[in-house]
Design a protein around this nucleic acid. Sequence first.
DNA 1: ATGACGATTTACT
DNA 2: GTAAATCGTCATA
Length: 213
Amino acid sequence: MSAERLGRRDYAVDSVRLAKRLIGQRLVRVLDDGTRLSGIIVETEAYLGAEDRGAHSFGGRRTPRNESMYSAPGTFYVYFTYGMHFCCNVVAGREGEPVAVLLRAAEPEEGIEVMRRNRSARPRKGALRDSDLCSGPGKLCQAMGIDRGLDGSDLVGGGAVFIERVRGRAHPDSALMNTARIGLGIDGEWGAAPLRWALSGNRHVSRGGKTIV
DNA sequence: ATGACGATTTACT
DNA sequence: GTAAATCGTCATA
C-alpha cells in the first residue's frame, strides 16, 4: 500500500493557499537506488507573479533559469544561488502563471542517516543534530539530494520527488506563524509582505539569520 | 565580454 | 553580530 500523493488539483491554487496547505504534508525524495528520504514540511514562502518585487518572475521576467515557474502547477522549480546552494519550489496557480512556493524547512522522517551524510560532505564543527538537516532552503536540498537536475520535474506522477498527503496534519492558520519572507534584498511593500509560514514552535524551522521568537 | 548580485550557510571575532 | 565562501545568471555594452 502506498500513501496518497497530492495531485494536480491540490497544486492548482494561488501560492498563498498552497504555502499554507503544504505545511504538515510529507516531501518525499526517492534516490536512484530506491532509498526514500522524506520529511514533514514545516516552513514555506509564497511568491506571487509579475507584481511581486521579491519573485524571480517579477515584471514578467522569463529566463532559462526560471522557466519552470511558467509550467503546470505541481512542477518542481529548483535553482542555484550564492554559488553553492540549491533552493526548491513547488509551482502553484495555473500553467503560464509564474507563481510558486519555496520549501524552506522540513522535519526529517525517513533516511535521516543518509541526510546526515549528505549534509556532512563539507567539513564542519560539531555533530549534526536532526534539526540541522533540513532547517533552511539550502540545507533541505543538500540533505535530500535535490539539485538542478530535478528542475522542471513533475511532482504529479511517478517521479523521484513528490508530496504525500498526511491525513490529520492540515494545520489551521492558528497553528502557523506568519512573517515577512527571509533574505530578500528589498524594502517596502513586497519586502515586508507577510508571505512566509512556519509551524509554530517546531524546532526544524529555519532561523533565517534572526532570533527565533 | 564584463560586472554585480543573489529566495544561503557557516565560521569567526 | 559580521564576513567569507563561491559561481551561475542576467543586464549592459
